[in-house]
Design a protein around this nucleic acid. Sequence first.
RNA 1: CGGAGCGUAGUGUAAUGGCAGCACGAGUCCUUCGGGAGGAUUUAGCCCGAGUUCGAAUCUCGGCGCUCCGACCA
Length: 417
Amino acid sequence: MRQSQLFYKTFREAPKDEESLNAKLLIRAGFIHKEMSGVWSYLPLGLIVLRKIEETIREEMNKIGGQEIFMSVLQPKDLWIKTGRWSKGVGEIMYKCQGVGKEVGLGSTHEEMITDIARKFIQSSEDLPLYLYQIQTKFRKELRAKSGLLRGREFGMKDLYSFHASEKDFKKYYETVKKSYLKIIKKFGLNAIITEASGAGFTKEYTHEFQVLADNGEDTIIFCPKKDFSQNKEITKLKAGQKCKKCKSILKEGKSIEVANIFPLGTKYSKAMGAYFIDKDGKKKLIIMGSYGLGPSRLMGAAAEVNNDKKGIIWPERIAPYQIHLILAKSQNSKVKKEAESLYENLQKEGLEVLYDDRIGKSTGEKLVEADLIGIPIRLVVSEKTLAKDSIELKKRSEKEARFIKKKELLLFLKSK
RNA sequence: CGGAGCGUAGUGUAAUGGCAGCACGAGUCCUUCGGGAGGAUUUAGCCCGAGUUCGAAUCUCGGCGCUCCGACCA
């Protein structure tokens, strides 16, 4: 992509009413645009990042047997009445159908719908286990949206639902999802701690939150530095300073961002909605369910919140909008431009993702500062200096020092990644 | 939903009752040419409504919006 053609704009200063770091950085670098509190639009750079996050999640979900579906945002009211959640006002946003004049739900979560689908398709133990997921926009009645992408009223959610014939089978899959989630989150440059939390109306047991330590997080956890233990402060009876029961490490307290939450639903929804299957023994039994949420937009916010320095964002490779930022330094010598153009063509031929700053009016300094703000992992510069050395300058966003590298070696280096 | 703060060009800021100004951005021209360059020139603004006043960006009331703290977060 030629930067001269890219729809974006960076800003020297963030809007004064944004306080959270992720919002400041993502707005300044031209990734997102706020429509209203808790509601964001994604500009080209931001959308690429969001799509990469979704794609990473999709790959991993498919690996653990997930099949992708896409449920509707508008949901029939009667399903919600069955589970008693319509009148409770537990977050569903009513939507008056224009013209029709009837109330329908605007999807805040999809347990009701998925169970409705499942009870129609699951008939015997032969149909189990079953893993269905979707990547969807959710709408929630957040009384207080805040912290940039970290808590929105409209946001992306990957929700996976599992259906099992036995508790044993459910527990096994629950552990599989835990491992898968840790793996996914790590690819976004984040280190999650699996944290026990309240059942939150879903279950009497613990649910599990995936918490990423960050000063701007809205949760507080008491955790073991070796990850042998972690509980949300809301429910824990332990305090920082006490010893971990498993490994005897001193427990710590920290602010954290909840990037995912998984729930053992048991038979709560299958019971409320009559989702049964015929087991091998010929008996009619309730389907055992789990639900597993992971938020792509919140993950994008968390990734920016955690991976940055004073100059800007430092995107982890897997979700960076481009892998390489090629910069044409300002020069009177037309050979410099020729060299950069030909390098751009070559890198593209190799199938590498390149953002090429081909703008001719901009000073080199401005380009470098802007590149740091945008945060692409590898920066290449073509200038009079590099031309004289018959090489290209290479610098990783995560490292301080740049180095010069011969063109042939450069391609090998980049392809090896 | 309770509490606090804030709403002035695209962004950041000044003017505290008397001609809305500055910087960045954006446009044009010249110079500069590796860490948001310099000069010239152009562009663009008082959240909405009511009130007080000779006169309101400024004071009062109402509304709307944003941020932060708290409650809530299925």
